[in-house]
Design a protein around this nucleic acid. Structure first.
Lengths: 207, 207
DNA sequence: GCAATTAACGAACGTTCGTACTACATTGCG
DNA sequence: CGCAATGTAGTACGAACGTTCGTTAATTGC
């Protein structure tokens, strides 16, 4: 890897961490440079503009999310195991302070940019659509596996699942309530239970 | 009402609207003054500091929320009617662009200040605690009325209900999906259904 | 209707913002 | 080794930031 690319990655990792605390808009080139013991101009040279820095920072966060939340889940067996793993990875992602000391950057940016058109918002929407699609697909597979009732609406369940995650994020971050994780877990189980296929249909699916 | 107080209210209403779009941190005194055809210094004189302006702006938004969401619900009959009314007022609040063209200010600020200690964050937490308490109380009353099962955990249900609202806000604002309201309504009904008291206990409660 | 209070203004403060341009240092390749 | 490309630093810019000041204009209470 070239030197430039290497430091750019270093910058972006720090940018993700900083932006998770102060937001993508609050992320300033000067303060970011200060954290990295770099000059403002030296850092700026890696990105043509602030918006470019913001976009790349968000993309880096999305990469991390994929690595830590989605990809591991795809290695699990289809159906409920995968769905449960995705969910628990997601909660761990919310709680983890390693890469994102200030909470999930995507969730923060979603609120910050819901009224600011531009490249950041577009990327945010695209990422959200992709994620929702992946969850809905996982649910559909769980139906195919006979784990969930066939009449389950994948998009509705995705919506409600997302709500549980949002509530957990909120309670963890703002209220600092560690019980939020437990609450979220209970909510997920109740959600699954409500849509779980009857034994009969499980048997039917297995024959 | 004194002249000063009058214009201060005018300023705060505009501040709520502006902050709902750009956030409480993004709210700048200069741009706010520009919107109101006032001088920066003239506006600033009403508030000792920017933080004071932010706190008062948030308080005004909380007032509006109480007026438009909580108070009307308290006029409804205890139990499910009140709970449903609270929820639908809340969704209307999220959707309404009259006072808050950029979505719920409290939700936006919750994400913005979850890592920024200070008076704004403290006020935010206090308001959230109050709201959660009010919802949990409404749920408890619904249990007392025999509408919901006695073993229902009010705080857990409050958590899940809040999640549905958060998901609706997200889908409305970021994705611009009007079906979010429908989704939220369905989710609420499913939540209620899951905790609804059996007919037997309803009859028992009525005797 | 006069005097005292209050509201609003315009200018300027020092700081930080994003960005541009120039010059020096380092790196990688022939 | 030497030269070209690349990375970093320095400096400067115009604009916007929150804030302070002194002054004028408007409103209030007697």
């Amino acid at each position: 890897m070239r030197k430039g690319e290497q430091t750019r990655t270093l910058i972006l990792n720090e940018a993700v961490a900083l932006a998770s605390q102060v937001g993508l808009e609050g992320l300033s080139i000067g303060s970011l440079a200060g954290r990295l013991d770099m000059s403002k101009s030296g850092l700026f040279a890696h990105f043509g503009s602030k918006e470019d820095l913001q976009v790349r920072t968000l993309r880096r966060a999305q990469e991390l999310f994929l690595e830590q939340v989605v990809s591991p889940a795809l290695k699990q067996a289809q159906g409920l195991p995968r769905l449960r793993n995705l969910f628990s990875n997601w909660l761990a992602w919310l709680e983890s302070n390693d890469d994102l000391p200030g909470g999930c950057l995507m969730l923060a940016a979603s609120v910050e940019y819901d009224d600011r058109p531009g490249a950041v918002r577009d990327l945010l929407v695209a990422g959200q659509r992709e994620l929702r699609g992946a969850i809905a697909k996982a649910i559909r597979l769980a139906i195919d596996e006979g784990h969930l009732e066939p009449q389950t609406d994948p998009w509705q369940l995705t919506f409600e699942l997302f709500g549980v995650v949002l509530a957990a994020h909120h309670d963890l971050r703002l209220l600092g309530d560690p019980r939020a994780l437990e609450r979220a877990g209970d909510a997920l189980e109740r959600l699954i239970e409500a849509h779980r296929a009857a034994e009969l249909s499980v048997l039917r699916a297995r024959t």
